[in-house]
């Protein structure tokens, strides 16, 4: 890989890239996912007019909101060249925590805890869920930076451990039937817009600003681009790497809450397999698994793409079995396309 860069360096410099702004492939590469999304949307609109019905479109958005929230966190993680496989389990655990705190007990602990079953105010419940998520992420971050175990392995452990914790915590029973205030965060609307969509887009904007304009954001790209160079430039790379898992945990906690509110039930099996969809969305959106390149904008597009695809295919009565095959193929081709463009630019 170094040699390839050397080559680019030697065969020479500068002027070559001035022309790049006129280069069609560069534009295509940058907006490949967006262009594909538009093409796909148009195709569905033509083939199945119900697709463009505003109610349906908001439905798509609502469906992708939970994935979207997770994908925001995952973008931070992948930008540092990390990965987090534990998010689905952490989501389930936090969902159960928020539910239990709100209701004052887990469904099972009817004994001792039932006495105070009046429950806590919603903000306390949300805080508890988010704290659980961040603590879980933080633990993994510490394992990655202190024990020097690769993120893939640590979070693979987390995938199992947090799911187990969720089962222990709830005794295997779902917690359901929440107050209206609680459900509002998953089922409600602000004007025509579903609440989860508002939450998702607000955090997306926030994350975009953080990654683009703050020092922290710059450091995240630096760490992912070249960890050793970042460390030798005085960055506290351990703390930075650990921090993205805390951020990921925050979003796992938050989306655990949103999902429980939407389904009016917190379950141990919630979020099963979500990590794959979320990673797929981030990667389709152009964030490099090798770190240092990509961003929130692409992630939003990537997640929307998956949502639109699922929704459109469902409307056209394509079985969900086939949908999985199609999405699998698209993931591979999105990355292939991305790499092809990059090679062309050399």
């Amino acid at each position: 890989m170094n040699r390839a860069t050397d080559a680019a360096v030697e065969q020479q410099p500068a002027k070559e890239t001035e022309d790049r702004q006129f280069d069609v492939t560069a534009v295509l590469g940058r907006f490949a996912a967006l262009i594909f999304l538009i093409v796909l949307g148009t195709a569905f609109a033509i083939l199945e007019p119900a697709f463009v019905n505003p109610i349906n479109l908001f439905n798509v958005l609502r469906q992708v909101s939970v994935y979207g929230l997770l994908a925001i966190g995952m973008t931070f993680v992948i930008l540092t060249a990390g990965i987090d496989l534990s998010i689905g389990s952490l989501l389930a655990l936090s969902g159960l925590v928020v539910a239990a705190v709100e209701k004052g007990s887990t469904g099972l602990l009817t004994g001792a805890a039932a006495g105070e079953a009046s429950g806590y105010p919603l903000p306390v419940a949300i805080l508890a869920a988010v704290i659980v998520g961040m603590a879980g992420g933080g633990l993994q971050g510490l394992a990655i930076t202190r024990l020097r175990v690769p993120p893939f392995v640590v979070t693979l452990g987390g995938l199992s451990a947090f799911r187990g914790a969720a089962l222990v915590f709830s005794g295997g029973q779902p917690i359901s039937a929440f107050s209206e205030d609680f459900r509002y965060w998953g089922q409600g609307f602000i004007g025509p817009v579903p609440v989860p969509v508002v939450i998702f887009l607000s955090f997306a904007v926030l994350a975009y600003i953080v990654l683009r304009y703050t020092r922290y954001g710059r450091y995240i790209y630096a760490v992912g681009g070249n960890l050793e160079a970042a460390r030798l430039s005085g960055l506290n790379t351990d703390r930075l790497v650990a921090s993205v898992y805390v951020i990921m945990g925050f979003f796992a906690g938050l989306s655990g809450f949103v999902l429980a509110a939407r389904l009016n039930s917190a379950e141990q099996v919630a979020g099963l397999g979500y990590e794959l969809t979320v990673i797929a969305g981030v990667v389709i959106g152009g964030t490099s698994l090798f770190g240092g390149e990509g961003g929130i904008f692409g992630t939003i597009i990537g997640v929307l793409l998956i949502g639109v695809l699922n929704n459109g295919l469902t409307l056209m009565n394509v079985s969900s079995y086939y949908q999985q095959i199609i999405i699998g193929i698209i993931i591979v081709f999105a990355v292939f396309f991305d790499q092809m463009i990059k090679r062309r630019q050399r």
Binding site: T5, G225, N226, A229, A230, L232, G292, E293
Partner: peptide, 8 residues
Amino acid sequence: GQALILSM
């Protein structure tokens, strides 16, 4: 390898 972040 140690001084530059090539992608930046």
